[in-house]
C-alpha cells in the first residue's frame, strides 16, 4: 500500500476499490454468524476454560517417551464455581461435574441446535449424540451455579 494513499485521486480510488472489493468478496454468511453470537451476551454464567486435554497431554508424553495412548479422549474445563470432566466415547459425551451436584446441562452447537441432559445427584451426565461442529456446554446446578465452557470442537 502506498504510504500516502489519500493524496492522489488515482491512488485513493484504487485503495477505495480494494476496500470495497474485500467486503464484497466476503460471503454474506460470514457476518450473519457473527451477528447470531450476540445471544450469548445475555447469558449470565462463569466461563469454564479448558485446563486439560488428553489428546494434547498424550502428544507431550509421546514426545519424551513412548506410552500407551488412551482410548478415550478426556477434557477438563475449570471455572471458579465448578469443574466439568468430559469423556468422549463413541457417539456420546459422558461427564461429571465437581463438586458433585444435580442440575442440567445444555450442549449448544454453533448451528443453534441445543441438546439438554440431566445431571444426577453425583454430578454425572450423558449427552447421547456428540454435537456436530463447534459447541459449548452450559451447566446449571441446583445450588445455583451457572457455568459455560469455551468453544469445543471434537
Amino acid at each position: 500500500m502506498a504510504s500516502q494513499w489519500w493524496i492522489d485521486d488515482d491512488e485513493l480510488l484504487a485503495t477505495l476499490g480494494d476496500a470495497v472489493r474485500t467486503a464484497r468478496d466476503m460471503p454474506a454468511n460470514f457476518a450473519e454468524v457473527g451477528k447470531a453470537t450476540f445471544t450469548w451476551h445475555s447469558i449470565d454464567a462463569d466461563l469454564a476454560t479448558l485446563t486439560r486435554d488428553s489428546a494434547r497431554a498424550e502428544e507431550e508424553v509421546l514426545a519424551s517417551a513412548r506410552s500407551e495412548p488412551a482410548n478415550l479422549r478426556s477434557l477438563t474445563f475449570t471455572s471458579a464455581q465448578l469443574t466439568i470432566e468430559l469423556e468422549v466415547s463413541s457417539g456420546a459425551l459422558l461427564g461429571q461435574i465437581v463438586p458433585p451436584q444435580a442440575g442440567r446441562i445444555d450442549a449448544c452447537a454453533a448451528s443453534g441446535h441445543v441438546q439438554t441432559a440431566v445431571i444426577d445427584e453425583i454430578g454425572c451426565f450423558a449427552i447421547r449424540r456428540i454435537p456436530e461442529g463447534s459447541f459449548r456446554l452450559h451447566c446449571q446446578t441446583v445450588s445455583g451455579a451457572s457455568v459455560i465452557t469455551n468453544w469445543i470442537t471434537l
Binding site: 460470514f30 453470537t37 463447534s134
Partner: peptide, 12 residues
C-alpha cells in the same frame, strides 16, 4: 468460519 465464530464469541 471456525475462526470467525471464535472471534465473535470471544468478543461477546
Amino acid at each position: 468460519d471456525d475462526v470467525g465464530q471464535s472471534v465473535w464469541l470471544r468478543l461477546v
